[in-house]
């Protein structure tokens, strides 16, 4: 089979399997043991794990360094890169370094604004945006050229990921923005956490109608709700998040001890529905600070064993 990167994720998707990916946040320090522990929960349970890049604009161990630990521990990383902290020179240098160490997936993101983090006075770089980052990684891979045009001595062959938010207004524009990311060179998409199933069905249908899902693999984002408080926070405080009232009602409808259980149940039902949804190629499980529950969720959602590819 003709492979762009040969990453496990690419092989899983191209073989027609329903992909199941996870996420690991690097430590706020050099605590390698804590990182390895998180990785151990996901190993063998997901096809690959996103390694976040200074998420919410808080300084953490760099994503490429944490991705290398992930690789060493036998879990394929998806190296996240945001546009907030680096210019195009640093980005390309890091991509070459990451690739040369065996990293094969990259997720291209804008990044949360620096004012949200622990260094709100930092200069946001945004030399290029996420769309231009996708195009840059593609040019490096397919043309063997740097963004500036010079030849690369041994181009990095990355499987290129991008994010999509199917819910943010203007809704009509969302699918066109997806189309732009596909045009720029995205091979796979990971969506914002999905709670509004009716709306994502509508979005995926449009993507199907435009022929986009034949060109890109879409993995739907899943984050199980741990508590009613978390659901309310996601609904009211997180920009671009769409949490329907029925989700909150359902969580409120069970005993307090069983809310987390209900959250996992909802997530499993969503995964079940996504498996059957035309245009969805997998799910991306973002179990934030809940990595130890991933094996159980994977098992209950029928995602195990992961395919050999």
């Amino acid at each position: 089979m003709d492979m762009k990167s040969g990453s496990r994720l690419e092989r899983v998707l191209k073989a027609g399997h329903f992909a199941f990916t996870g996420e690991v946040g690097p430590p706020r320090g050099a605590n390698v043991e804590a990182l390895k522990k998180k990785i151990s929960y996901l190993k063998g349970k997901v096809d690959m794990a996103n390694i976040t890049d200074n998420q919410t604009a808080m300084v953490r161990m760099s994503s490429w360094a944490a991705a290398l630990f992930c690789l060493q521990e036998g879990l394929e990383p998806n190296y996240q890169m945001v546009c907030r902290d680096r210019n195009r020179l640093a980005m390309q240098a890091d991509i070459l370094g990451a690739y040369s160490h065996g990293i094969r997936n990259i997720l291209c993101l804008s990044g949360d604004h620096q004012m949200f983090g622990d260094h709100p006075h930092a200069k946001g770089v945004y030399d290029i945006d996420s769309m231009q980052l996708i195009a840059m990684v593609k040019k490096m891979r397919d043309e063997g050229k740097f963004q500036g045009g010079a030849d690369i001595d041994e181009p990095p062959r990355m499987f290129i990921g991008a994010a999509a938010n199917p819910f943010a207004e203007p809704f009509e524009w969302r699918v066109h923005r997806l189309a732009k990311k596909v045009k720029a060179g995205a091979d796979f998409i990971q969506t914002q956490c999905v709670y509004n199933m009716a709306k994502i069905r509508q979005w995926v249908k449009r993507a199907n109608d435009m022929g986009l899902t034949e060109k890109v693999y879409i993995l739907a984002g899943i984050t199980p709700m741990k508590s009613v408080g978390m659901a309310n926070y996601m609904k009211n405080k997180v920009p671009g998040m769409d949490v329907p009232d029925e989700i909150i009602k359902r969580l409120k409808g069970v005993e307090k001890k069983k809310v987390a259980e209900e959250g996992i149940k909802i997530a499993c039902e969503q995964i079940e529905e996504f498996r059957e949804m035309k245009g969805i190629a997998g799910v991306h499980l973002m179990a934030i600070e809940w990595e130890h529950r991933v094996p159980e969720i994977a098992e209950r959602a029928g995602m195990l064993p992961r395919p050999e590819v």
Partner: peptide, 14 residues
């Protein structure tokens, strides 16, 4: 706020 040339980003909020 991010000087994006291909926005909006995921943080756009109604």
């Amino acid at each position: 706020a991010k000087s994006l040339f291909n926005g909006p980003c995921g943080g756009t909020n109604n």
